[in-house]
Design a protein around this nucleic acid. Structure first.
Lengths: 111, 111
DNA sequence: TATATTAATCGTAATATTGCAATATATAAA
DNA sequence: TTTATATATTGCAATATTACGATTAATATA
């Protein structure tokens, strides 16, 4: 096993899980925070900022890129990475409405 | 390797990552959605609702319980699981402010 | 063209996650 | 006490993730 049975869940459930998974590693959280902070960056900065080896950072960047959370444009020998603002809004909506689930039914707790 | 270097990240970064990781599997997303929907539940219901074996569900419930996201009280031979509303508010604040990062600096995008 | 710089990719080791069958545990009912 | 029911735990196989050294690819500069 070791493989997630995505086919038995709804599209929304899988989307929430995929996005949450992207934020499920502190290095990727740190990368995103740094990109927001300086609003543009090259991979080398991140290697210095975060204490992980260059291939490791590159791998995390790839994951974020594959999900469309960040985008990178080549600038000479380096790459300028930044947050995809449009995608970020979508993520906020998807995860935001998931987190806001407690407002949908004004119930009292059971236990 | 295969082990996350938590010690090089801030407490907040690790907290965000841990919480996000909890939502990083569609089964756990589905469990949480179901618990919110019916606002009280036993494990057996979840096994029927979600198409995974009983030990698998039990394992996912354990993870959510360890993080304090859900709590369970024994009722006869079954266990009543439900969302910890207080913890949920904390989660909303932690992840919410992470997602709201784009509002902190009114920058324009770089790329 | 040769060399330096930067980031991506490859290969691999260590560890984590997912899933389930089998079993154990705990309580309720007969 | 025996039996049924519900959930937890154990053990294990398959796969995924994390991390990094070595290498490659691509561009800039001397």
């Amino acid at each position: 096993m070791g493989i997630t049975k995505s086919e038995i869940f709804t599209e929304t459930q899988n989307e929430i899980a995929l996005l949450a998974k992207a934020f499920g590693h502190p290095a990727r959280v740190a990368i995103i925070q740094y990109l927001f902070k300086i609003n543009a960056c090259v991979c080398g900065d991140l290697v210095n900022e975060i204490g992980l080896a260059q291939p490791t950072i590159s791998q995390h960047l790839k994951e974020l890129k594959q999900l469309g959370i960040i985008k990178g444009t080549v600038e000479g020998t380096s790459v300028c990475y930044c947050i995809d603002q449009t995608k970020w809004q979508t993520i906020k909506e998807v995860l935001g409405s998931f987190l806001d689930m407690d407002n949908c039914n004004a119930n009292t707790s059971c236990c």
